[in-house]
Design a protein around this nucleic acid. Structure first.
Lengths: 188, 188
DNA sequence: GCAGAGAGAGAACGATCGTTCTCTACTTCG
DNA sequence: CGAAGTAGAGAACGATCGTTCTCTCTCTGC
């Protein structure tokens, strides 16, 4: 068995379990069993649970960034690219495993106790805002549009998670259309 | 010492501690010390930690509802009332103790494990959405406006919490103005 | 003054968690 | 074939948490 293959399986399993039950609710033994590795191997790959948490956050960031960018790239014009953000959210919300943004959740759970987790969540959100800002800039929108759309996307995630229904994506998309058209129409 | 006075002090102290450190990070002994009551009294007032958590959620709901309504009532016309939501958020975000919406945080921490907490968070958000819907209806807006503003408010809360800066309130308010004016302008 | 109920302080208990240690068995190389 | 290094399974350990129990002190009613 390849070493990095075990790492990947551990992180992927931890991602699923942490998402489904919360980080603190999943013990190392449960993770060990689900991932099918020995405790020894687990601690050989990762020195502590917090390092697994950080690896899961990195995985989530990469997965989110790649998935979002893949959806956005399919859109034709800059306006459609901005709206594609909310199409990506819609697809995500419809997954059975969706239980809210993993960064918001980990921040809520551990942000006050672990500065590492809080920093990573902040960086992830900053990276998303910069991505939106890039798309908005390509569309020729004034700089105030990107934070507006970012906030809309954040709100859709928490609303969909707590309400347990994916309709927030469409509602946010409708609001985004109005905001984009306003920003592109009169760029005051 | 009045019985209900001890209850109030316990819940108020728990609210502060849970908000600052997360629910799972605060033990009964820390709460007991901070509230200045004996363990015996604590378990005399509340049968378990989860009942304290539910009491804290009720307190948060009441505090949020009253504070929001007090701010909204000061606004003159229906449009200003809708915007006052974001003024209330701005004042909240500027408090040192602000660490995100307590319902989003408790949902992230315990929602997957405790159906009670998940239900209460959902009900709180529903109640907020209905409140916004009432204001939007008074303003004569079409029904799609209220979910848009609710999502905006949710997004502002998580953005401000993770970024650690209150500017999301103003950004969301700007977006709300555009959405409100659009919805009132052509109520298609 | 005294018996008894009640409150406070904190020890104690059982469970769980993260982490480490031990023991066994298998593989691999000479 | 034999020895040695390695990996797996799980016991063990220390810490912590929610909860209960015990012991002591105080305050009240007769």
């Amino acid at each position: 068995m390849d070493i990095s293959e075990a790492r990947n399986r551990i992180v992927a399993t931890a991602d699923g379990l942490y998402n489904a039950k919360g980080i603190q609710a999943v013990g190392m033994d449960e993770l060990r069993t689900a991932a099918g590795v020995s405790l020894k191997k687990l601690y050989q790959e990762f020195p502590s649970k917090s390092s697994i948490v950080m690896a899961v956050l990195e995985r989530r960031h990469q997965s989110w960034t790649e998935g979002l960018d893949a959806t956005v790239r399919q859109a034709a014009d800059p306006r459609a690219k901005l709206l594609a953000i909310f199409d990506y959210l819609a697809g995500w919300f419809c997954q059975d495993s969706f239980r809210g943004c993993g960064f918001i959740n980990s921040f809520a759970e551990l942000g006050a106790v672990s500065p590492e987790v809080a920093d990573y969540a902040r960086k992830h959100k900053e990276s998303f805002q910069e991505y939106v800002a890039g798309l908005a800039s390509e569309a020729g929108a004034p700089p105030y549009l990107a934070p507006q759309l970012s906030i809309l996307a954040e709100g859709a995630q928490t609303t969909a998670a707590i309400a347990g229904s994916p309709e927030a994506a469409g509602q946010a998309r409708g609001a985004a259309e109005v905001l984009i058209d306003f920003a592109l129409g009169r760029t005051a």
